[in-house]
Amino acid sequence: MKKSIGILTLSLIILTLACNRKEAEEELAIDNPELPLSIPKGFPPLNEAFYKNKPTKYGVELGEKLFHEKRLSGNNTISCASCHQQSKAFTDNQAQAIGIYNRVGLRNTPPIQNLAFIKHYNWDGNKRQLETQPLVPIITHEEMNSSIVEVMSKLKVEKDYQILFRKAFGDPEITPDRIYRSIAQYEYTLISANSKYDKVKRNEGIHFSDTELQGYQLFQAKCASCHSGELFTDQSFRNIGFPINPSTEEAGRGRVTGIREDYMRFRVPSLRNIAYTAPYGSFGQFKTLEEVLDYFDKGVLHANNLDPILTENGNRIPMTPKEKSDIISFLHTLSDETFITPR
């Protein structure tokens, strides 16, 4: 009898333990909902990669933390946000990006904005999915000078990351893919569509000033054939005769395709938040918007593959001083203050 009581107690204990365990597991089961994104009206279609990696609550939280993580660099001094600073619409105000040990990169840092709607990334479009992009700065000698295995080994020992990877992906394992996917998810959420221009368009009771309106009309006539649509880019690659980067590494789109006609062609940049992202051009050739417009007005460099829109106009876009200042007033209406302010 005594024996059976013993067994009974034992099995009870086991049962309770088992129950406790189940309870604990339930507690651990995480609710990681998809984040609804509000897609601004008139924006181009989403990049197809988005549908395979939709932002989730914790995926984005993890991505944001990784974006600001200096341990992604070899000597723990540079994060993505060192070059992509929110207060400057995720650029750095440098002519050419400055990375680890103050090494100078080849190109100017572009803003990280509305990238969910972009088909080709970087100045030359050599990446088609945001998920395949983060490895480039991590391994690049002039940027973060690290390796993905080195990064994983640094993150693995951090309790915060173990928790966040589990919340975002169901278990604490850190893989290259999860790092890339979460960073991309965060970038997908960086949507800028709350500028004065947007408010005017949405009829929110705000109006352009006279100069802004004139600038807008001039822009439609002189610029919108390339800087078209709600992102102010048709996402094509063009050579518009900007001064040429002296580095022999540079060939624009030609570096990727190996096609002669693509030599020194660059993706038409979005002009949203342009007032925050000086200097301008693929290697920061121009300090101000005035300099860009003066250059167009005086005449651009000739090239065999110079865009027909320029060759048909004697290699220039002529503008009077008044027209230039009107266009610049308009460009300032593309500034989205909420976008550059931390949430």
Partner: peptide, 14 residues
């Protein structure tokens, strides 16, 4: 630095 200058790494671009 032109598209036909092939002695430097920009050959991998053209």
């Amino acid at each position: 630095t032109g598209p036909d200058d092939n002695a430097t790494p920009n050959i991998h671009t053209a």
